[in-house]
Nucleic acid binder design. Structure first.
Lengths: 173, 173
DNA sequence: TATTGTTATACTCTATAACTATA
DNA sequence: TATAGTTATAGAGTATAACAATA
């Protein structure tokens, strides 16, 4: 309630109306519909969470849940991880991640082992079945969104690719 | 499992490597790190859900949850809505939305009334307190992301604005 | 009969607090 | 004492199935 809205003090802050300040480098894109960074941020945030819900709707009954699959992908592609490392990467608390890991270990998709050098740590690794599941399921899970991304223009696809980088960056800080 | 990965048959489908096919309209943006639409879709999906979790982490204890605030914003800015309309907009089932609405009604932020023309329907409207809460809380809730968006380059801000439109479109279909 | 909303129930996701084991 | 992980507990979010009221 008492937090002020940060009147543009940043070097790259824009003066309320964005388009005029742009160096005309993006002619193919339509004008921004947002009057301010606050409005853009608000819109983006709501769009993000609604899209997450939309994607959740799409999941088939026999598939891992979104959280489980995301955690499995991280373990599989980012190598062996401790619980803390995984929970930080997934942006949840260790107890939350532990519950997800329990489900994955019970399904024999992830192996949980004690670290050799530090008895407090556990090392999480994707099992052979876990790695196979990622590879097999990935295309099917992504089919819904991939079909739609495929129908976008090359420019829009470029926008999504760029946005993905920005979103990763935002999620990490 | 049996769903095939759709070998680029779409008119706008790109031939596995994106950059070469682009009409050189976006010189300021770096080359795409994705080899295929499947990979972009996968990355984008995971980034989206991780960012949602990151944003959830940011919520203060005395604020509405993400789902409650999103629903309140929809009722407030998209006028009176029936339960079905709201649940479709928020991309959850009517029973799920009903639970959220119950919380908002209990907090006297939303009014639930019977529709005059159709006794089966309910009309949801933001109360005066609900509208005031949206306006008061919005800046504070968005402060975290707005601060970060403010530090992005104008080009990156443009990307986010464009991506927001695409994400809204994706969530609606 | 079909539609709209609600209740009942269950499972996942998430968090905080408190505990154990190790460093 | 500090750190890594786990267990206990609780609340929010979500869904399906079943039900009630209305059209």
């Amino acid at each position: 309630m008492s937090t002020s809205p940060q009147p543009n003090e940043q070097p790259t802050g824009l003066p309320a109306a964005l388009p005029a300040a742009l160096p005309a480098a993006l002619p193919a894109l339509p004008a921004l519909p947002h009057d301010s960074i606050a409005e853009l941020s608000h819109d983006f945030r709501l769009a993000n969470s609604r899209l997450t819900r939309r994607l959740r709707q799409q999941r088939a009954d026999d598939e891992l849940t979104a959280g489980q699959f995301s955690a499995l992908c991280s373990v599989y592609s980012s190598g062996p991880l401790t619980l803390s490392e995984l929970s930080e990467h997934e942006r949840v608390t260790p107890p939350s991640m532990n519950r997800t890991v329990n489900a994955l270990v019970a399904a024999q998709l992830v192996k949980r082992e004690n670290a050799a050098d530090d008895g407090r740590k556990v090392i999480l690794t994707a099992s052979e079945a876990g790695g196979a599941l990622v590879q097999e399921t990935r295309e099917r899970r992504d089919a819904w969104i991939a079909q739609r991304v495929m129908k976008l223009s090359p420019e829009q696809q470029q926008v999504l690719a760029e946005a993905t980088l920005i979103m990763k960056e935002l999620a990490e800080n």
